[in-house]
Amino acid sequence: MTVKVENITEIKGFLQELKEYSSYDLCEYSDSSIYRRIKKILKDHKLSLDQLIAKTKTDSLFIENIIQEITVNTTEFFRDPEVWRELYQNFYPTLRNKKYINIWHAGCSSGQEVYSNLILLNELDLLDKSNVIATDLNSKVLKVAKSGKYDKKENQEYFENFNAVLNREGNGSDILFEKYFEDGVNSNCVEVKSFLRKQSDFQQHDLVKEEMNNHAKFDIIFCRNVLIYFNSALQTKILKQFHNKLTNGGILVLGNHEGLNGFFKTKFIKDGPVFIKNNTFHFQF
């Protein structure tokens, strides 16, 4: 069966219906990537766009599944090891004297980077004073994140990043993987140990729709490879929120090939792989 190629206007019609019949607003996602994702869904489910819209109006479980397929949920332990090395060696040590360290993972997906970060904090003896909030709009990936259970095979290559970050030559004695993960010999899963799991607070939250309700400002916000799926207007709106929610000198960690658009280029200073909140100008915008 050949699937009719829908045009972007029709796809936008679907996004409007989705917004009306569910809590999900994807209207300001970037056109081309949403177009590609929805075309793939139509093909995988052998649906026409009309059928997709009809199902969206009646089947809430279907919506949850579709949202998981539209959004990109790929993530890795210690993705881009050099970024984590920088945090480990240079940034976190500067927070040693703070009473609390507040951290937000915005768009945390299945949580691998949340646990990566908790491992660093533990190695630096900062775990007890860290408050970690991790949010995503999709309930299904959050469930995985909370469980801390990961497929061994799917994540195997990323566990190598663990050594690249924590066990570089000349570090003396090696930090063992087993310190943080239960690795059942006969199981396909590795499981994050409970002392790490209980340190993170996973919450469902849609960056697009609401501000983060947290009275304390964050010392660090991770939002890696999330904004690339949004259009410029939405990116700007979210960057403004991040800027407001960061402490002075707080840092924003984006994906390795994400930049800041327009106005916000002046509101952050790029320092290696991270963006430091710049408070030189205190005007309102």
Binding site: S30, S32, S33, R36, R37, V72, T74, R79, D80, N225, I228, Y229, G255, N256, H257, E258
Partner: peptide, 21 residues
């Protein structure tokens, strides 16, 4: 094309990177 990203060309002659599967 940077490692670990897909690279797409957009109609407005910009580059779009994606971490999809």
């Amino acid at each position: 094309a940077p490692s670990n990203y897909h690279l797409f060309i957009e109609f407005d002659n910009t580059i779009h990177l994606s971490t999809e599967e």
